[in-house]
């Protein structure tokens, strides 16, 4: 049987990779890809804690389902914003969206 620590380390590594993508990529769509990786890491944690504690209380799976819904909402609004910005400014590079910068 796989110990719990392996799942938690996998989730931590996935979270770190997603964080790297969010901090480093210049394209706004690529930043949202990084956010998706981080949300998946959180979901692995929730499901593995459900499996390794009381399986009859479904708290971990319920919150994983709610994270699915929140991720879908986040990505639809985020991509709509990116497309709207692309129409007005003709760019999706995060560095060039500096209208509010002094």
């Amino acid at each position: 049987m796989v110990p719990l620590s392996w799942y938690l380390l996998l989730a931590a590594a996935l979270f770190g990779i997603g964080l790297f993508g969010v901090l480093v990529r210049r394209n706004a769509v690529a930043i949202l890809l990084g956010v998706e990786l981080m949300l998946n890491a959180v979901n692995i944690n929730l499901v593995s804690f459900w499996r390794y504690s009381d399986v009859l209380s479904m708290t971990g799976q319920v919150f994983a389902v709610i994270v699915f819904a929140v991720a879908a909402a986040e990505v639809s609004v985020g991509l709509a914003l990116v497309i709207s910005v692309y129409r007005r400014r003709n760019t999706v590079i995060a560095d060039e969206l500096d209208l509010l910068k002094w």
């Binding site: 799942y7 979901n43 692995i44 499901v47 499996r51």
Partner: peptide, 10 residues
Amino acid sequence: VYALLNANFI
């Protein structure tokens, strides 16, 4: 990974 954790529906 979810399947390995017996979370079939997820």
